[in-house]
C-alpha cells in the first residue's frame, strides 16, 4: 500500500510540469513559465512565460513580484548595432487577441538579488501584475542552465 502510494507520487511528479499548466486571469491565459538554474544566488535569474490575451481589450504586464528575488523587474534584451543590452521595460504590451512571450532574446523577467540559488527541478511562485486584469500568481519551473524552454506536448501554439 505504502509502495503503491509512493509510486503514485513519483508518477505525479514526473508528469506534472507546472510550466505546461495554463493559468487564467479574466481574458488572459499564462503558460510555459520557466527559469534557468543559477550558480549560487549572486547572479541574476531569469523568467520566461507566454501570455495570451483572448479578450477584445489591450492589456499590459506592468510588474512582477516573487519571494525568490529581492529585486525582480521587467527587462527587454535589445541588440543594436550587434551589441546586446538589457534596458528596463516599463511594461510588456499584451494586445487584444495576441500571444506575447517573455522569451530568450526578448522581454524577460530579471530576478536580481536572488534569495537562494535556483536549482533545476525546483519551482517558485511569481505574481504577475497587469494594468487591466489585475494580479495572478503562476508557478515557475526551474530548468537546466542549458534549457531553451519547457517541453510541453501541446505548447499552446
Amino acid at each position: 500500500m505504502k509502495a503503491l502510494a509512493f509510486s503514485a507520487i513519483l508518477t505525479l511528479t514526473a508528469s506534472a510540469s507546472f510550466a505546461c499548466e495554463t493559468v487564467t486571469l479574466g481574458d488572459l491565459t499564462i503558460q510555459n513559465a520557466w527559469s534557468r538554474a543559477t550558480i549560487g544566488a549572486g547572479r541574476p535569474g531569469v523568467l520566461y512565460l507566454e501570455i495570451t490575451n483572448n479578450g477584445g481589450t489591450d492589456d499590459a504586464l506592468v510588474g512582477i513580484a516573487t519571494p525568490a528575488a529581492g529585486m525582480p523587474m521587467l527587462h527587454e534584451t535589445v541588440v543594436s548595432d550587434g551589441v546586446a543590452s538589457m534596458p528596463h521595460a516599463m511594461a510588456v504590451p499584451v494586445p487584444a487577441g495576441q500571444t506575447v512571450a517573455l522569451a530568450p532574446g526578448g522581454y524577460h523577467g530579471m530576478l536580481m538579488d536572488l534569495t537562494a540559488a535556483l536549482k533545476e527541478g525546483e519551482t517558485f511562485p511569481v505574481t504577475l501584475m497587469f494594468q487591466a486584469a489585475g494580479e495572478v500568481t503562476v508557478t515557475v519551473d526551474v530548468l537546466s542552465m542549458r534549457a531553451e524552454g519547457p517541453d510541453c506536448a501541446d505548447a499552446g501554439q
Binding site: P95, Q98, V100, P104, A155
Partner: peptide
Amino acid sequence: RGRRTVILGLGGV
C-alpha cells in the same frame, strides 16, 4: 522556439 516568437500572432506590435 522562443527566440523567433518574441511576439506571436499578427498585427502592429
